[in-house]
């Protein structure tokens, strides 16, 4: 039995597949591929698949990964070949490797956020405001959390979780690049950051696009 890490994109309308639905989709894709994967041995046997880090709904990604276990002798190349045509639209298979890092090593996510405004001045106003708020480390976001068994909204200060923040305005579009804390114990999705800035802003973007570029480890090295 070997662990393999499958890398794939999640782009276009596939960004609206929730984490649970993605798990079921991957299970079916693996089933269709006919690959010899390892089944759990419980009452209800199912293919073993684990996502090192779930992606929030509505965020596109250039590099998502999922770990599976295959029977001895199944090579990464074989997995790639058999799985390639079984991936739904927008979930494009990139590569299959043996896992290099442990999921626990995930510390940050690298994102690009593209915001369209009505006019260029709005984009600039929003860019300046966000630079200032990030600098001040005063941003707070609301995040769904749990208190015992109850679901509650928690306020999370963002100051300590924003890194390498930069903005670029091109006509009426603002492009923000940023690294945010990811994994355990705190996972900040980019829409939370933008939402926190929007609360302070008098101009709001018309369209928002969130893209995850990659995951990073402790020293801002790429998680593989």
């Amino acid at each position: 039995m070997n662990s393999l890490r499958i890398w794939f994109k999640k782009v276009g309308r596939a960004k609206y597949i929730s984490h649970l639905d993605l798990m079921r989709s991957m299970t079916k894709a693996i089933k269709r591929s006919g690959l010899k994967v390892w089944y759990t041995e419980g009452f209800n046997p199912h293919a073993y698949i684990v996502f090192p880090l779930p992606l929030s709904l509505g965020i596109e990604s250039e590099s998502e990964c999922v770990d599976i276990r295959v029977e001895d002798g199944v090579t990464p190349w074989e997995v790639k070949e058999k799985l390639f045509d079984q991936m739904p639209e927008g979930l494009d298979l990139i590569s299959v490797d043996e896992p290099f890092c442990n999921a626990k090593e995930i510390k940050y996510g690298r994102y690009v956020v593209t915001l369209d405004f009505e006019k260029e001045t709005d984009a600039k106003i929003f860019a300046e405001l966000s630079e200032k708020l990030v600098e001040e480390k005063s941003l707070v976001c609301e995040k769904k959390g749990k208190k015992g068994h109850k679901k509650v909204m928690k306020e999370v200060p963002l100051g300590e979780h924003i890194f390498n923040f930069s903005t670029e305005v091109k006509e009426n579009t603002l492009i923000i690049s940023v690294d945010l804390s990811a994994g355990n114990p705190v996972n900040i999705a980019p829409n939370l950051l933008i939402g926190a800035i929007e609360k302070e802003s008098r101009v709001l973007p018309l369209y928002k696009k969130f893209e995850k570029k990659c995951l990073l480890t402790e020293n801002f090295e790429i998680f593989r």
Binding site: A14, Y16, I17, S18, D21, K28, P88, E89
Partner: peptide, 12 residues
């Protein structure tokens, strides 16, 4: 549940 409205499912 935006997945209700996206289409793009496998075999569509």
């Amino acid at each position: 549940k935006p997945g209700r409205y996206t289409g793009g499912e496998f075999n569509s």
